[in-house]
């Protein structure tokens, strides 16, 4: 009973907070709601016994990416958008599109084959702890994707420096 209650609370809170993020007129308020949203997602990971993902959600998303969002909001200097009416009058198109996307999601969800149970059952994860289980796999079997991640991060560094430094010169 309690796991279901926890899941339902976090599921509804996440949907409500996501709606709050996109409906606030002040973008800084949106960012604050997103912070609360990230904490709820982290807690949802905890209910799945994925403590490392929960820690990452706080460290990377709430800690770093949200700061990036905030800086972008402050950089764009949204003066007009705050007071302007943002939603276009073509709401029928929006409803149609969202129904179509929901249909695709539901169809995909119902056609996912739930294959045979893997090695990492909840009991194994609980006894071994999530971080150890993840580390063992990541640094042996998934070594190649792990090294590719460093190259992707390198691209992000170079991209940020090229974009921002170019803007400074002009």
């Amino acid at each position: 009973m309690l796991p279901q209650v926890l899941f339902l609370y976090f599921a509804f809170a996440i949907v409500a907070l996501s709606l709050a993020v996109i409906t606030r007129k002040n973008p800084v308020h949106s960012v604050i709601f997103m912070l609360v949203l990230f904490f709820h997602i982290a807690a949802l990971y905890l209910t799945l016994n994925a403590e490392f993902l929960a820690a990452i959600q706080i460290i990377v998303y709430a800690g770093a990416i949200l700061v990036l969002f905030l800086f972008v909001v402050l950089m764009l200097n949204l003066k007009e958008e705050v007071t302007e009416h943002r939603y276009i009058s073509l709401w029928a198109v929006g409803v149609l599109l969202s129904i179509a996307i929901s249909a695709i999601f539901l169809m995909t969800l119902s056609s996912i084959p739930l294959g045979a149970k893997g090695v990492f059952s909840p009991d194994v994860i609980a006894s071994e702890t999530h971080t150890v289980a993840l580390g063992k796999l990541l640094y042996t079997e998934f070594l190649y994707p792990f090294e590719i991640a460093s190259v992707i991060l390198l691209v992000a560094i170079v991209g940020a420096v090229v974009l921002a430094k170019k803007r400074l010169k002009s």
């Binding site: 770093a64 990036l68 800086f71 940020a160 420096v161």
Partner: peptide
């Protein structure tokens, strides 16, 4: 500020 935040994200990851 953007470049500092971007570099922070990368090294945080």
């Amino acid at each position: 500020f953007y470049i500092i935040a971007m570099l922070f994200v990368v090294f945080d990851v």
